[in-house]
Computed example of a mutant assay.
Amino acid sequence: MNHILDVCKSVYNYALRGHKDWLSSRKSPINICSIISEYIIPGDTPYPNYNYQAKNLTTAKKTNPKLKSVNAQVLQQTLKQLDRAFSEMKSLGKGFPRFKKRMRSFVFPAMLKNYLGCGRFKLPQLGWIKIRQSRPYPEVMVAKQARIVKKATGYYLMVSFTSSKSVPDNLVGKTSLGIDAGIESFVATSTGKLIKAPKFLSGQLRKLKLASDPAPPPGARERASLLQRRLKHKNKGSSNWSKLQNRIARLDEKISNTRRDWHFKITHQLCDLADNIFVEYVNFNSWSKGIVRKQSLDSGIGQFINEILPYVCWKRGKYYAKVDKNYTSQEYPLCGHRQKKKLSDRKHNCSNCSYQINRDVAAAKIIRNRGLIAVGHTAKEKRTACAEVPSA
Protein backbone atom coordinates (compact mmCIF):
# COMPACT_ATOMS: atom_id res chain seq x y z
CA MET A 1 0.00 0.00 0.00
CA ASN A 2 2.86 2.38 0.75
CA HIS A 3 4.34 1.58 -2.66
CA ILE A 4 1.03 2.34 -4.39
CA LEU A 5 0.74 5.67 -2.56
CA ASP A 6 4.29 6.57 -3.54
CA VAL A 7 3.69 5.81 -7.22
CA CYS A 8 0.39 7.72 -7.19
CA LYS A 9 2.18 10.72 -5.71
CA SER A 10 4.78 10.61 -8.48
CA VAL A 11 2.11 10.37 -11.19
CA TYR A 12 0.12 13.24 -9.66
CA ASN A 13 3.12 15.56 -9.38
CA TYR A 14 4.41 14.67 -12.87
CA ALA A 15 0.98 15.39 -14.39
CA LEU A 16 0.71 18.65 -12.46
CA ARG A 17 4.15 19.65 -13.73
CA GLY A 18 2.89 19.05 -17.26
CA HIS A 19 -0.09 21.34 -16.64
CA LYS A 20 2.08 24.12 -15.23
CA ASP A 21 4.65 23.89 -18.03
CA TRP A 22 1.93 24.08 -20.69
CA LEU A 23 0.32 27.11 -19.04
CA SER A 24 3.69 28.83 -18.51
CA SER A 25 4.58 28.37 -22.17
CA ARG A 26 1.44 30.30 -23.18
CA LYS A 27 2.18 33.42 -21.13
CA SER A 28 4.44 35.05 -23.68
CA PRO A 29 2.72 37.78 -25.79
CA ILE A 30 2.20 37.16 -29.48
CA ASN A 31 3.73 40.36 -30.82
CA ILE A 32 6.72 40.75 -28.48
CA CYS A 33 9.19 38.57 -26.60
CA SER A 34 8.76 38.26 -22.86
CA ILE A 35 11.72 38.50 -20.52
CA ILE A 36 10.00 36.29 -17.96
CA SER A 37 8.87 33.33 -20.09
CA GLU A 38 9.09 32.03 -23.63
CA TYR A 39 7.42 29.24 -25.56
CA ILE A 40 9.04 26.04 -24.35
CA ILE A 41 6.34 23.74 -25.76
CA PRO A 42 5.31 23.77 -29.47
CA GLY A 43 2.21 25.79 -30.21
CA ASP A 44 0.30 22.83 -31.69
CA THR A 45 0.67 20.75 -28.51
CA PRO A 46 -2.84 20.10 -27.08
CA TYR A 47 -3.84 21.00 -23.56
CA PRO A 48 -2.79 18.17 -21.17
CA ASN A 49 -6.25 17.18 -19.99
CA TYR A 50 -7.19 13.80 -18.54
CA ASN A 51 -7.54 12.00 -21.89
CA TYR A 52 -4.19 13.28 -23.13
CA GLN A 53 -2.33 12.36 -19.95
CA ALA A 54 -4.05 8.97 -19.63
CA LYS A 55 -2.86 8.12 -23.15
CA ASN A 56 0.70 9.12 -22.24
CA LEU A 57 0.44 7.04 -19.07
CA THR A 58 -0.38 3.94 -21.10
CA THR A 59 2.70 4.52 -23.24
CA ALA A 60 4.93 5.14 -20.21
CA LYS A 61 3.82 1.92 -18.48
CA LYS A 62 5.44 -0.13 -21.26
CA THR A 63 8.93 1.13 -20.44
CA ASN A 64 8.67 2.11 -16.75
CA PRO A 65 8.62 -0.89 -14.38
CA LYS A 66 7.59 1.29 -11.44
CA LEU A 67 4.38 2.33 -13.17
CA LYS A 68 3.79 -1.24 -14.35
CA SER A 69 3.81 -2.47 -10.72
CA VAL A 70 0.62 -0.54 -9.87
CA ASN A 71 -2.90 -1.17 -11.11
CA ALA A 72 -3.63 0.95 -14.19
CA GLN A 73 -7.08 2.02 -12.98
CA VAL A 74 -5.63 3.33 -9.73
CA LEU A 75 -3.25 5.59 -11.64
CA GLN A 76 -6.07 6.74 -13.91
CA GLN A 77 -8.10 7.73 -10.86
CA THR A 78 -5.12 9.81 -9.71
CA LEU A 79 -5.18 11.69 -13.01
CA LYS A 80 -8.94 12.20 -12.64
CA GLN A 81 -8.33 13.66 -9.19
CA LEU A 82 -5.98 16.24 -10.70
CA ASP A 83 -8.45 16.98 -13.49
CA ARG A 84 -11.21 17.62 -10.92
CA ALA A 85 -8.88 19.96 -9.04
CA PHE A 86 -8.42 22.09 -12.16
CA SER A 87 -12.17 22.03 -12.86
CA GLU A 88 -12.97 23.23 -9.35
CA MET A 89 -10.29 25.90 -9.64
CA LYS A 90 -12.15 27.38 -12.62
CA SER A 91 -15.76 26.81 -11.54
CA LEU A 92 -15.58 27.29 -7.76
CA GLY A 93 -12.71 29.78 -7.68
CA LYS A 94 -10.37 27.57 -5.67
CA GLY A 95 -6.60 27.93 -5.61
CA PHE A 96 -4.15 26.42 -8.04
CA PRO A 97 -3.40 22.72 -7.31
CA ARG A 98 -0.22 22.15 -5.35
CA PHE A 99 2.39 19.46 -5.49
CA LYS A 100 1.81 16.71 -2.94
CA LYS A 101 4.37 15.67 -0.37
CA ARG A 102 2.39 12.50 0.25
CA MET A 103 -0.78 10.80 -0.97
CA ARG A 104 -3.24 9.74 1.69
CA SER A 105 -5.58 7.53 -0.35
CA PHE A 106 -6.06 5.68 -3.62
CA VAL A 107 -9.15 4.25 -5.34
CA PHE A 108 -10.03 0.96 -7.03
CA PRO A 109 -12.94 1.94 -9.34
CA ALA A 110 -13.90 -1.66 -10.21
CA MET A 111 -14.31 -4.77 -8.07
CA LEU A 112 -13.43 -8.41 -8.72
CA LYS A 113 -15.83 -11.33 -8.58
CA ASN A 114 -16.62 -12.80 -5.16
CA TYR A 115 -14.94 -9.89 -3.41
CA LEU A 116 -16.87 -10.12 -0.12
CA GLY A 117 -15.73 -12.31 2.72
CA CYS A 118 -16.26 -12.62 6.44
CA GLY A 119 -13.76 -10.22 7.98
CA ARG A 120 -11.88 -9.78 4.71
CA PHE A 121 -12.19 -8.04 1.35
CA LYS A 122 -10.73 -8.84 -2.07
CA LEU A 123 -9.11 -6.02 -4.05
CA PRO A 124 -7.79 -6.16 -7.65
CA GLN A 125 -4.07 -5.85 -6.96
CA LEU A 126 -3.78 -6.62 -3.24
CA GLY A 127 -5.94 -9.73 -3.23
CA TRP A 128 -7.60 -10.79 0.04
CA ILE A 129 -6.91 -8.41 2.93
CA LYS A 130 -8.07 -8.81 6.52
CA ILE A 131 -10.29 -6.05 7.86
CA ARG A 132 -12.09 -5.19 11.07
CA GLN A 133 -15.57 -5.04 9.62
CA SER A 134 -17.52 -2.22 11.27
CA ARG A 135 -20.93 -3.16 9.85
CA PRO A 136 -22.50 -5.91 7.71
CA TYR A 137 -22.41 -5.60 3.93
CA PRO A 138 -25.67 -4.48 2.24
CA GLU A 139 -27.36 -7.53 0.78
CA VAL A 140 -29.23 -5.92 -2.14
CA MET A 141 -26.44 -3.56 -3.22
CA VAL A 142 -23.32 -3.93 -5.35
CA ALA A 143 -19.93 -2.49 -4.47
CA LYS A 144 -19.09 0.35 -6.84
CA GLN A 145 -15.57 1.26 -5.73
CA ALA A 146 -13.17 0.88 -2.83
CA ARG A 147 -10.90 3.54 -1.38
CA ILE A 148 -7.99 2.86 0.97
CA VAL A 149 -7.14 5.76 3.27
CA LYS A 150 -3.94 5.99 5.27
CA LYS A 151 -4.22 7.61 8.70
CA ALA A 152 -1.98 7.81 11.74
CA THR A 153 -3.70 4.83 13.37
CA GLY A 154 -3.55 2.58 10.30
CA TYR A 155 -5.25 1.91 6.96
CA TYR A 156 -9.01 2.26 6.47
CA LEU A 157 -11.11 0.68 3.72
CA MET A 158 -14.09 2.72 2.47
CA VAL A 159 -16.43 0.78 0.17
CA SER A 160 -19.14 2.56 -1.82
CA PHE A 161 -22.23 0.47 -2.63
CA THR A 162 -24.83 1.29 -5.26
CA SER A 163 -28.43 0.21 -5.74
CA SER A 164 -30.85 0.35 -8.66
CA LYS A 165 -33.66 1.59 -6.39
CA SER A 166 -34.22 5.34 -6.19
CA VAL A 167 -34.60 7.03 -2.81
CA PRO A 168 -37.30 9.75 -2.71
CA ASP A 169 -36.65 13.12 -1.15
CA ASN A 170 -37.84 13.73 2.39
CA LEU A 171 -41.20 15.45 2.64
CA VAL A 172 -42.04 18.46 4.77
CA GLY A 173 -43.33 17.47 8.20
CA LYS A 174 -45.50 19.15 10.81
CA THR A 175 -43.03 20.40 13.43
CA SER A 176 -40.14 22.71 12.54
CA LEU A 177 -36.89 23.75 14.16
CA GLY A 178 -34.59 26.65 13.34
CA ILE A 179 -30.86 26.40 14.10
CA ASP A 180 -28.51 29.36 14.32
CA ALA A 181 -24.73 29.04 14.49
CA GLY A 182 -23.70 31.22 17.42
CA ILE A 183 -20.51 32.68 18.83
CA GLU A 184 -20.93 32.18 22.57
CA SER A 185 -22.75 28.87 22.03
CA PHE A 186 -22.20 26.23 19.36
CA VAL A 187 -25.77 26.42 18.05
CA ALA A 188 -29.02 27.95 19.27
CA THR A 189 -32.43 26.48 18.51
CA SER A 190 -35.76 28.18 18.01
CA THR A 191 -37.04 26.42 21.14
CA GLY A 192 -34.62 28.44 23.27
CA LYS A 193 -31.96 25.76 23.73
CA LEU A 194 -28.31 26.89 23.73
CA ILE A 195 -25.75 24.17 23.07
CA LYS A 196 -22.13 24.89 23.93
CA ALA A 197 -19.34 22.94 22.28
CA PRO A 198 -16.58 21.32 24.35
CA LYS A 199 -13.11 22.70 23.76
CA PHE A 200 -11.79 19.71 21.89
CA LEU A 201 -8.42 21.15 20.93
CA SER A 202 -7.62 22.90 24.23
CA GLY A 203 -8.46 19.84 26.32
CA GLN A 204 -6.32 17.49 24.27
CA LEU A 205 -3.38 19.88 24.17
CA ARG A 206 -3.52 20.08 27.95
CA LYS A 207 -3.32 16.28 28.18
CA LEU A 208 -0.57 16.27 25.60
CA LYS A 209 1.59 18.65 27.63
CA LEU A 210 1.20 16.68 30.85
CA ALA A 211 1.87 13.35 29.11
CA SER A 212 4.87 14.52 27.15
CA ASP A 213 6.76 16.34 29.91
CA PRO A 214 6.88 14.65 33.35
CA ALA A 215 8.17 17.80 35.01
CA PRO A 216 6.73 20.83 33.22
CA PRO A 217 8.20 24.23 34.15
CA PRO A 218 6.13 26.21 36.66
CA GLY A 219 3.84 28.82 35.18
CA ALA A 220 3.95 27.39 31.65
CA ARG A 221 0.89 27.90 29.53
CA GLU A 222 -1.03 24.62 29.38
CA ARG A 223 -2.42 25.26 25.95
CA ALA A 224 1.06 25.27 24.36
CA SER A 225 1.83 22.09 22.46
CA LEU A 226 5.09 20.78 23.87
CA LEU A 227 5.34 18.02 21.30
CA GLN A 228 5.40 20.53 18.46
CA ARG A 229 8.07 22.50 20.29
CA ARG A 230 10.16 19.38 20.67
CA LEU A 231 9.67 18.54 17.00
CA LYS A 232 11.61 21.51 15.66
CA HIS A 233 14.67 20.48 17.68
CA LYS A 234 14.80 17.05 15.98
CA ASN A 235 16.75 16.31 12.82
CA LYS A 236 14.28 16.19 9.95
CA GLY A 237 13.93 12.64 8.65
CA SER A 238 15.50 10.99 11.70
CA SER A 239 13.90 8.14 13.64
CA ASN A 240 13.00 10.34 16.62
CA TRP A 241 11.54 12.95 14.27
CA SER A 242 9.31 10.31 12.66
CA LYS A 243 8.15 8.96 16.03
CA LEU A 244 7.25 12.44 17.22
CA GLN A 245 5.40 13.16 13.98
CA ASN A 246 3.38 9.99 14.48
CA ARG A 247 2.46 10.99 18.05
CA ILE A 248 1.26 14.40 16.88
CA ALA A 249 -0.73 12.82 14.03
CA ARG A 250 -2.39 10.37 16.43
CA LEU A 251 -3.37 13.24 18.70
CA ASP A 252 -4.85 15.21 15.80
CA GLU A 253 -6.82 12.17 14.69
CA LYS A 254 -8.15 11.64 18.20
CA ILE A 255 -9.31 15.26 18.36
CA SER A 256 -11.02 14.92 14.98
CA ASN A 257 -12.76 11.66 15.94
CA THR A 258 -13.95 13.11 19.25
CA ARG A 259 -15.36 16.19 17.54
CA ARG A 260 -17.08 14.17 14.83
CA ASP A 261 -18.63 11.75 17.33
CA TRP A 262 -20.02 14.67 19.35
CA HIS A 263 -21.45 16.22 16.16
CA PHE A 264 -23.37 13.03 15.35
CA LYS A 265 -24.80 12.79 18.86
CA ILE A 266 -25.97 16.42 18.83
CA THR A 267 -27.48 15.98 15.36
CA HIS A 268 -29.56 13.01 16.46
CA GLN A 269 -30.79 14.98 19.47
CA LEU A 270 -31.88 17.84 17.21
CA CYS A 271 -33.64 15.46 14.82
CA ASP A 272 -35.67 14.14 17.76
CA LEU A 273 -37.15 17.60 18.31
CA ALA A 274 -38.77 18.29 14.92
CA ASP A 275 -39.58 17.00 11.45
CA ASN A 276 -38.15 20.00 9.57
CA ILE A 277 -34.68 21.41 10.19
CA PHE A 278 -33.85 24.87 8.87
CA VAL A 279 -30.41 26.52 8.93
CA GLU A 280 -29.02 29.69 7.39
CA TYR A 281 -26.74 29.72 4.38
CA VAL A 282 -23.36 30.86 5.76
CA ASN A 283 -19.91 30.84 4.19
CA PHE A 284 -17.97 29.23 7.03
CA ASN A 285 -14.69 29.64 5.16
CA SER A 286 -14.88 33.34 5.99
CA TRP A 287 -15.53 32.45 9.64
CA SER A 288 -12.25 30.55 9.72
CA LYS A 289 -10.41 33.73 8.74
CA GLY A 290 -12.26 36.27 10.90
CA ILE A 291 -12.25 37.20 14.57
CA VAL A 292 -14.06 33.96 15.51
CA ARG A 293 -11.64 31.72 13.58
CA LYS A 294 -10.35 29.95 16.70
CA GLN A 295 -13.82 29.12 18.02
CA SER A 296 -15.19 28.04 14.64
CA LEU A 297 -12.21 25.81 13.80
CA ASP A 298 -12.17 24.22 17.25
CA SER A 299 -15.91 23.47 17.23
CA GLY A 300 -16.06 22.41 13.55
CA ILE A 301 -19.28 24.31 12.93
CA GLY A 302 -18.85 24.21 9.15
CA GLN A 303 -18.56 20.42 9.10
CA PHE A 304 -21.61 20.15 11.37
CA ILE A 305 -23.92 22.41 9.31
CA ASN A 306 -22.85 21.45 5.79
CA GLU A 307 -22.00 17.74 6.08
CA ILE A 308 -23.20 15.88 9.17
CA LEU A 309 -26.55 17.59 9.76
CA PRO A 310 -27.91 17.11 6.21
CA TYR A 311 -26.69 13.50 6.13
CA VAL A 312 -28.39 12.54 9.40
CA CYS A 313 -31.57 14.41 8.38
CA TRP A 314 -31.68 12.46 5.11
CA LYS A 315 -31.00 9.19 6.91
CA ARG A 316 -33.76 9.74 9.46
CA GLY A 317 -36.32 11.13 7.02
CA LYS A 318 -36.19 14.73 8.21
CA TYR A 319 -36.61 17.69 5.89
CA TYR A 320 -33.47 19.87 5.71
CA ALA A 321 -33.23 23.27 4.01
CA LYS A 322 -31.15 26.45 4.07
CA VAL A 323 -32.59 29.96 4.16
CA ASP A 324 -31.27 33.47 3.55
CA LYS A 325 -28.93 34.70 6.29
CA ASN A 326 -29.40 38.44 5.77
CA TYR A 327 -30.63 40.37 8.82
CA THR A 328 -31.32 37.27 10.92
CA SER A 329 -29.44 38.86 13.83
CA GLN A 330 -31.17 42.25 13.44
CA GLU A 331 -34.78 41.27 12.87
CA TYR A 332 -37.13 40.63 15.81
CA PRO A 333 -39.23 37.46 15.65
CA LEU A 334 -42.32 38.98 17.28
CA CYS A 335 -42.93 42.17 15.30
CA GLY A 336 -40.47 41.94 12.42
CA HIS A 337 -38.77 45.23 13.32
CA ARG A 338 -35.11 45.56 12.33
CA GLN A 339 -32.60 47.23 14.58
CA LYS A 340 -28.82 47.32 14.21
CA LYS A 341 -26.77 45.92 17.06
CA LYS A 342 -23.11 45.51 17.84
CA LEU A 343 -21.49 42.10 18.03
CA SER A 344 -21.07 42.57 21.77
CA ASP A 345 -24.85 42.96 22.24
CA ARG A 346 -25.95 39.43 23.07
CA LYS A 347 -29.63 40.20 23.80
CA HIS A 348 -32.46 41.53 21.71
CA ASN A 349 -34.19 44.57 23.19
CA CYS A 350 -36.79 45.69 20.68
CA SER A 351 -37.55 49.40 20.71
CA ASN A 352 -40.85 48.75 18.92
CA CYS A 353 -42.51 46.11 21.14
CA SER A 354 -40.15 45.95 24.17
CA TYR A 355 -39.48 42.27 23.49
CA GLN A 356 -36.31 40.88 25.06
CA ILE A 357 -34.74 37.56 24.15
CA ASN A 358 -31.33 36.01 23.60
CA ARG A 359 -29.85 37.17 20.33
CA ASP A 360 -28.97 33.69 18.99
CA VAL A 361 -32.36 32.26 19.95
CA ALA A 362 -34.11 35.14 18.17
CA ALA A 363 -32.03 34.46 15.06
CA ALA A 364 -33.02 30.78 15.22
CA LYS A 365 -36.69 31.79 15.36
CA ILE A 366 -36.25 34.01 12.31
CA ILE A 367 -34.58 31.11 10.46
CA ARG A 368 -37.48 28.83 11.35
CA ASN A 369 -40.03 31.42 10.18
CA ARG A 370 -38.22 31.93 6.88
CA GLY A 371 -38.01 28.19 6.37
CA LEU A 372 -41.75 27.79 6.94
CA ILE A 373 -42.52 30.54 4.46
CA ALA A 374 -40.21 28.92 1.90
CA VAL A 375 -42.05 25.58 2.12
CA GLY A 376 -45.47 27.25 1.96
CA HIS A 377 -46.43 27.21 5.63
CA THR A 378 -47.54 30.17 7.70
CA ALA A 379 -45.01 31.38 10.25
CA LYS A 380 -46.55 32.82 13.41
CA GLU A 381 -44.59 33.93 16.43
CA LYS A 382 -46.41 34.29 19.73
CA ARG A 383 -45.11 35.65 22.97
CA THR A 384 -45.02 32.86 25.51
CA ALA A 385 -44.53 32.77 29.24
CA CYS A 386 -40.85 31.94 28.83
CA ALA A 387 -40.16 35.13 26.86
CA GLU A 388 -38.00 37.62 28.66
CA VAL A 389 -40.15 40.74 29.09
CA PRO A 390 -38.66 43.70 30.96
CA SER A 391 -40.28 44.39 34.30
CA ALA A 392 -41.90 47.75 35.04
Rank of each mutant, 00 (worst) to 15 (best):
I4V: 14
C8V: 15
C8Y: 08
Y14I: 00
G18P: 04
S24G: 05
E38Y: 09
I40H: 12
I41S: 11
D44V: 12
P46L: 09
P46E: 10
Y47K: 09
Y50W: 12
Y50S: 04
N51G: 07
A54K: 10
L57N: 02
T58P: 00
K62S: 01
P65E: 06
K66E: 15
Q73N: 08
Q73T: 11
Q76N: 11
L82M: 06
D83A: 14
R84Y: 13
E88K: 14
S91E: 09
L92K: 03
G93Y: 02
K94Y: 14
F96V: 14
R98K: 15
R98F: 03
F99N: 11
F99T: 12
K100S: 10
K101I: 02
M103G: 00
R104L: 07
S105Y: 13
S105G: 03
V107M: 07
K113E: 12
R120N: 05
F121L: 15
L123P: 08
W128H: 01
R135Y: 04
P136E: 06
Y137E: 00
P138E: 00
P138H: 03
P138W: 04
M141T: 06
A143H: 04
Q145N: 14
Q145T: 13
T153I: 07
Y155W: 10
Y155M: 06
L157P: 10
M158D: 00
M158H: 15
M158R: 06
S160N: 07
F161V: 07
F161T: 04
P168V: 06
L171F: 04
G178S: 09
I179K: 05
I179S: 05
I183N: 03
I195Y: 13
I195K: 09
K199A: 13
K199D: 10
Q204M: 14
D213Q: 11
G219A: 01
S225G: 07
L231V: 07
L231Y: 05
N235W: 00
S238R: 02
S238A: 08
Q245F: 01
N246A: 12
R250V: 01
L251K: 06
I255Y: 08
S256V: 08
S256D: 03
K265V: 15
Q269C: 06
Q269S: 03
C271W: 02
A274D: 04
A274H: 05
F278Y: 15
V279I: 15
E280M: 05
Y281V: 09
Y281G: 11
S286E: 14
R293D: 03
Q295R: 15
S296V: 05
D298W: 11
G300F: 07
G300L: 12
I305Q: 11
E307L: 08
I308E: 05
L309Y: 06
Y311F: 14
Y311I: 12
V312S: 00
V312N: 00
G317F: 10
G317N: 07
K318Y: 05
K325C: 09
Y327A: 02
S329Q: 09
Y332A: 01
Y332E: 10
L334Q: 10
C335G: 01
G336Q: 08
G336I: 03
G336L: 08
K341D: 07
K342L: 12
L343C: 07
D345Y: 04
H348P: 01
H348F: 12
S351V: 00
S351D: 09
N352W: 06
S354F: 13
I357V: 10
I357W: 02
D360H: 06
V361T: 11
V361W: 06
K365I: 15
I366D: 01
R370A: 04
R370C: 05
L372N: 15
G376H: 04
R383V: 11
A385Q: 05
V389E: 02
A392R: 07
